[in-house]
Every structure is written in C-alpha cells, then in structure tokens.
Computed example of a mutant assay.
Amino acid sequence: MSIDNRPTVRRVLIITLLLNILVMIIKVVVGQMTGSLSLMADALHSVTDSANNVLGLVASQFSSPHPDREHPYGHLKFEAVGALGIAAFLGIACFEILKGVVDRLLTGGKPVQIGATELWILLIVLGINIFVAFYERREGQRVGSPILIADAHHTMSDIWVTIAVLAGLIGVWLGYPWLDIVLAFPVACLVFWSGWEVLRTNLPWLVDEAAIAPEAIHDLVMQVPGVINCHDIASRGVVGRQVFVEMHLVVAADDVERAHQITEDVEVEIRNRFAPVRVLIHVEPPTYESDQISYGPPAPSPGEDLKTQN
C-alpha cells in the first residue's frame, strides 16, 4: 500500500512559504536601507526559497502515489522533478550573486551603511531560517518526502548565507567595508553546493537506479521455505516512500496453488522489510535456475578469473 503524504507536504510548504516571504521582505528592506551587496544577494536567495515552496506545492499536487490508467506506477516522480527545479533555482541564484559581485568590483558603488538595529533584525531573520530548515527537514524525513528534504537543504544553505552576510556586515560596522564584497563569494559557493546536493539526491530516482541492493533481497528471499532459487532481481524507487521489486523465482512446488503460496510468503517478507513496496514475481521451472542474482555480466568463475590474470 502506497502512502499518500501530500496533505502533510502541502501544510508544511504553506507554513514555510509564509515565513520565507517574511524573511525575503525583511532582507530587501534592510538591504535597500544599507546598500549591502551581500545582503541583497541573500535576499535573492530568499526569493528562490519562496519560489521553491510554490514549486513544491505544484509538484505535490500532482505526485499522488496511487496508480491510474495513464500512470500505473503512480505519480511520485513529480516530487523528484520538483526537487530538480529547486536545483535549477539554486543555480540561477549562484549566477546572480557572482554577477553582482563582479559588477560591484568593476563599477564600485555607494558605501554600505549599517547600524546595530539592522544587525539585530538580521539575527531575528537567522532564527526564522533555522526554525524553517529544521522543521521542514524533520517533517520531510517523517513522511518520506523528497521535496521537503530538498527544500530543507536549500533553507539550510540560506542559514549559512545569512551567517556569512551577518559576519560581513558586522565587519563593515567595525570599519572593514571590503568584507561585504569578499563574503559574497562564499555565499555563491554555498548556494552552488546546495544545488548539487539536491541534484545528486534526486537523479538516481529519476533514472531508476537500484533502490535496494539485489544481494539484500536475495538473502531475504532465500530464507523463505520452499524457495530454491532467486535471480534477475531488480528494484527502483525510494525506500520508505515507494519501491518496485521484480524477480525470477524457482520454487519447490508440485502445483500452481503451492507455488502461489510460496510467492505470497516472499511478498510478505519483502513488504515487512521494505514497505511500502510492490512486488512482481515470475515463477520458473527448476531448469531455469541461475546464479545471476541481478542484471549485468555474470561474475567470472575462479578458473576464468585466474586465466584473465595470466
């Protein structure tokens, strides 16, 4: 049975969207008041936070785990597509930050003016960002939502961005105006790293990378009474969210009813370990027994391995 976590995902995204809009407005206002390049870059990062929340709401609306005629495997990959959109937003933010730094270095600009009041306001903004990141990550892990976890990564990068900007503005306040430009570079690096993490996490799901090691499934299945051989194992999806498992099975059965019962026992064991999961089993006669657990070239025999080394 697939788990539909969309109501929780939507609730969390709406809460974080409202908080991110508040943070964005505060940064823009303070950035305009102080003339800080790094703070305006940070505000741009917060714009992508809000855009990501909207993107997540749209993706969640279409990411039902329940199959239908057009999508017999469900619609969960919409969440991964949404997460890739977040990575794209992060890349755009990184480019805009670097562009702003280069423009400031080439053309200069008015000096940054910062006071204690603005610094205290940014500390409050930092506290909001910390709350959003940990709240979103906790809820994403609890319900197994890639879109929430990906967005939490983005918000976590915003925390480090705000810390870097705050440190730079404190330096400006103490008489080091060049810190505002210098610290914009690590801001861009943090944004880029967050985008890479989101991309690295979600691409395996989209390209159907194995969700479970075939050896783990093989060891589990071979413990079921009546199973003689298990081979050509394949899996895809996300463990804890939805996994699809396929395999070929040789069983000790004299009739179809007994063979069916053994496959049912196998499915129960797999569901107990990796639920939610959909299992497809192809029962074969004993002559089809194979040592090839999964797909790809079979492992060489000891004699062939020795011959290769010589």
Results as ranks from 00 to 15, higher is better:
residue 206 L to Q: 02
residue 150 A to C: 14
residue 186 P to E: 13
residue 238 V to F: 01
residue 185 F to V: 15
residue 127 G to Q: 04
residue 244 F to E: 11
residue 188 A to K: 03
residue 124 I to D: 10
residue 129 N to K: 15
residue 150 A to F: 03
residue 243 V to L: 07
residue 159 I to R: 06
residue 188 A to T: 11
residue 151 D to M: 00
residue 156 M to S: 14
residue 162 T to F: 00
residue 202 N to I: 06
residue 194 S to H: 02
residue 203 L to D: 00
residue 166 L to S: 00
residue 226 G to L: 08
residue 138 R to N: 14
residue 228 I to V: 14
residue 159 I to C: 10
residue 175 G to L: 05
residue 220 L to H: 09
residue 152 A to W: 00
residue 206 L to C: 04
residue 213 A to M: 14
residue 132 V to W: 03
residue 131 F to Y: 14
residue 197 E to L: 03
residue 146 P to K: 15
residue 123 L to N: 11
residue 237 G to W: 00
residue 164 A to D: 06
residue 140 G to F: 04
residue 131 F to I: 11
residue 134 F to G: 08
residue 160 W to P: 08
residue 188 A to W: 08
residue 161 V to H: 08
residue 189 C to D: 10
residue 196 W to V: 04
residue 166 L to Y: 05
residue 229 N to F: 04
residue 127 G to F: 12
residue 199 L to T: 04
residue 168 G to L: 02
residue 180 D to H: 09
residue 222 M to C: 12
residue 236 R to Q: 11
residue 131 F to Q: 13
residue 195 G to W: 06
residue 186 P to F: 10
residue 227 V to F: 12
residue 142 R to F: 11
residue 202 N to S: 05
residue 177 P to R: 08
residue 161 V to Y: 01
residue 225 P to T: 03
residue 235 S to Y: 04
residue 168 G to P: 04
residue 127 G to D: 11
residue 242 Q to D: 13
residue 219 D to I: 08
residue 196 W to Q: 01
residue 125 V to I: 12
residue 154 H to R: 11
residue 163 I to C: 12
residue 222 M to I: 13
residue 155 T to I: 14
residue 148 L to F: 10
residue 240 G to D: 09
residue 197 E to C: 06
residue 122 L to M: 15
residue 128 I to H: 02
residue 151 D to W: 05
residue 202 N to H: 04
residue 183 L to E: 00
residue 189 C to F: 15
residue 237 G to S: 12
residue 142 R to M: 11
residue 137 R to P: 00
residue 124 I to S: 12
residue 233 I to G: 08
residue 123 L to Y: 08
residue 158 D to K: 04
residue 162 T to R: 07
residue 175 G to R: 07
residue 207 V to K: 07
residue 180 D to Y: 09
residue 138 R to C: 10
residue 157 S to P: 02
residue 149 I to W: 04
residue 222 M to E: 13
residue 207 V to Q: 03
residue 214 P to F: 03
residue 170 I to L: 05
residue 141 Q to A: 14
residue 233 I to C: 07
residue 204 P to M: 06
residue 145 S to D: 10
residue 173 W to P: 03
residue 181 I to R: 05
residue 223 Q to K: 15
residue 201 T to Q: 01
residue 167 A to K: 02
residue 180 D to C: 10
residue 125 V to D: 01
residue 209 E to K: 08
residue 212 I to F: 02
residue 239 V to Q: 13
residue 126 L to C: 07
residue 178 W to G: 03
residue 179 L to C: 01
residue 160 W to D: 13
